[in-house]
Computed example of a mutant assay.
Amino acid sequence: MLFSLYIIVTVAARTRSLPEIACNRLKIGDNWYDRDTLWANIGRPYNLNVHRGSNSLFFSYSLPETYADVDFQLAYFNIDTREYQTIAGIRGGCSVAIDQMNDEIYLGGSDGIYKYNMLTKLADFYKEKGKNIWSLFYKKNLFYISYPDQKLHIEYDGKFATVKEFENFEIDYFHVSSVNVIYFANKTGLYKYDNEKMEAQVVNELITVRQIVEDNEGDTYIVSNFGIFADGKYDGLKKILDMKNIYGLAFDKDNNFIYSDEKNIIKLVYSLVGCDKKPVHW
């Protein structure tokens, strides 16, 4: 009896003394996800965008200050094969937009817009020679934001022109949702544009927007310095992740979250178990 009691006490003491294993899961909304690091130790990955046909993630990242001539670099990472490569030939490459229907991948840098060829793995010059491209967006037409004036341009009939409705706005990020809600953001906050009233409506003046994206089901997400917000379409924005160090967001072909922090690109895979579950002891 004393021997059995000694075993129970000893096992309990050892169990309590075991170090706790840090939980590597993340909660977004009501769901838990396992983290899978796709690319580590890279400088602030921005503008994440997945080409669904090949399940390849395109993005830009910042280079060390020792590189005097180039401050941004474009790269891709194939999520299925783990193949990755930097994209050569685009000076100051910092922006991505993808026409998923036609498999067209547009990349922007400090000297114009390029198209990326998935077969040759090369970027060929497209249009706007000499223009500094801050951001790209595709929805039926190709849009770009020029730097440093932050003006919105649209491609129509083979040529680019300034979008008249936004001539009086500085724009850092632009997005048209699946239900045709027009979002844009600048240093003063996040806005919606009312086409009927032809005026901008304030959504949030406190956040700094880092990306506006859409998942495969047409839901819109805002990446900010206060975390990730989801567009409830009719109920407004709702914060689903309170994390300040997120810089980019995309969704792979299976609609899994892929996000970036200061140094890593991480894929989230749905988990049935969360970090709030109590560990099982024997």
Rank of each mutant, 00 (worst) to 15 (best):
N168C: 03
T188N: 14
D242N: 10
K164Q: 15
N225L: 04
K233G: 02
F169G: 05
Y156A: 06
I222P: 06
I240V: 15
F226M: 13
T188C: 00
Y156E: 15
K239H: 05
D219T: 11
D219C: 00
I258K: 00
V209W: 01
K164F: 13
T188Q: 10
H153D: 11
D242K: 11
F160G: 06
Y221C: 04
D231L: 09
A230I: 15
V209T: 12
D219F: 04
M198Y: 02
I246F: 04
S224Y: 03
L241C: 05
L249K: 00
I171L: 08
D215P: 07
G232Y: 02
Y193S: 09
H153K: 12
Y191C: 09
E167S: 12
E155M: 15
N195D: 15
K197G: 00
I171M: 07
D261T: 09
D219A: 01
Q211Y: 00
D254G: 01
V209D: 02
G158N: 07
F166Y: 12
V181K: 14
I207S: 02
F169Y: 15
S177F: 08
E167V: 15
I228Q: 00
E196A: 10
D194E: 13
D261S: 04
L190A: 03
K238F: 10
V202E: 11
Q201C: 11
F160C: 12
G158H: 11
Y221T: 09
